[in-house]
Simulated scan of single mutants.
Amino acid sequence: MIPSSFDYVAPDSVDAAIAALVEAGDEAKVLAGGQSLVPVLRLRLAAPGLIVDLRRITELTGVRRDGADVVIGAMTTHHDVVTDPVVGEHLSLLAKTAATVADPQVRHRGTLGGALVHADPAGDLGAVAVALDAVFELAGPSGRRSVAAADFFQDYFTTAVAEDELLVAIRFPSYAGWGAHYEKFTRVAQSWSIVSVAAAIKVTGSVVTQARVGLTNMGPVPLRATAVEAALVGGPATADAIRAAAASAAEGTSPVDDTSAAADYREHLARVLTERAVLAAVG
């Protein structure tokens, strides 16, 4: 299908983009990489009056260190996330997860910020952001504010970003020296996750000293498997201990029945994939 007609602007600064959003109100849609928005436009599931294209705003791209943190611009592509050496050293879980997103063509066009704001519960990167305690930096007409990942995702395809705001960057603490793995279960290659698990584990000696485990598609928003984390920390990094901790992976989740899987099957997958992800993360 052909999209409905719309006006188009490509501002070269965050302030200019926000001004365009304020003027257009709820008639505006933001274009980042376009991998989610363009199909929606073509199917006429959305008919905005204005498209605000962010690709000319250079301050929204790139990776930098800020003290102990790593800050990634919202318009940084998945490919650049995967190949950036700073991300590889300090956020290996993010790099490994981004490498599983769709296919190389999508990873060269799609952006980290665009995927996170789209907030599809089957999207891969939300679980990583929640697991790694990311902080989302938003800009709007009233200035800039920060939102913790736990508060950023609010419901299906819904985030804390207001209509007149932009996500400008995502800030992560450093996880250098941690083991990490993303275990993804799909019906066919390059499709949306039925369930996935993001695990970052720190082992000292033979003991798990810190653990972060995120779940994809186990509810309307990405979730932390807090029961698994609590069971892991302080215990031995052994297969038996990890298997016992993973048994609680579905606690506090609310998976749905749909054409891809039943809710109880998703709960089973969460337990199995958590065990695999943590085992791989601890080596």
Rank of each mutant, 00 (worst) to 15 (best):
T76V: 03
A99V: 00
L54P: 02
P121W: 04
T209C: 09
R65I: 08
N217T: 02
A200K: 05
L94R: 04
G49K: 00
K202P: 03
V213G: 06
Y182A: 04
V52T: 08
I170T: 12
F152N: 06
L60S: 04
G25D: 12
W178S: 03
G123M: 09
A46D: 14
A245G: 00
G219F: 14
D133Y: 05
D53P: 00
V161N: 09
G205P: 03
S5M: 05
S92E: 12
V197G: 03
P39Q: 13
I2E: 10
A230D: 15
V52K: 08
R64I: 02
A150H: 08
A17L: 10
R42K: 15
A270L: 01
R243G: 14
R109F: 01
A277N: 07
V9C: 04
P11Q: 09
S36H: 13
V282P: 01
R271S: 12
A241P: 02
D84K: 04
D15G: 11
D15H: 12
P104E: 06
L50I: 03
E27I: 00
A199N: 06
V228L: 06
V22E: 15
V128A: 01
L273K: 01
V87Y: 04
A46F: 07
V207C: 07
R42F: 10
H118M: 10
A28K: 03
G143P: 10
A99F: 02
M75D: 03
K96T: 12
P11E: 07
P220Y: 11
S142P: 07
A127R: 06
K184S: 01
A127C: 06
G33C: 09
I72M: 02
L37V: 10
A102L: 08
M1V: 13
G179F: 06
Q210R: 15
T216M: 07
T216C: 15
D12V: 14
T77N: 06
R107E: 04
V221T: 13
V256E: 13
D26W: 11
A241L: 02
T159W: 12
A134L: 10
A245H: 00
A261V: 00
A162S: 15
E275W: 05
V81M: 05
L279F: 05
S92W: 01
E89Y: 02
V117G: 09
L167R: 08
D69L: 00
G33E: 09
D133C: 05
A46N: 11
D53T: 00
G234P: 08
Q210W: 08
R271T: 15
S92R: 13
A162F: 08
F6S: 00
I51P: 00
L60E: 05
V38F: 02
A180Y: 05
T226C: 12
E27D: 13
V52N: 07
V208A: 04
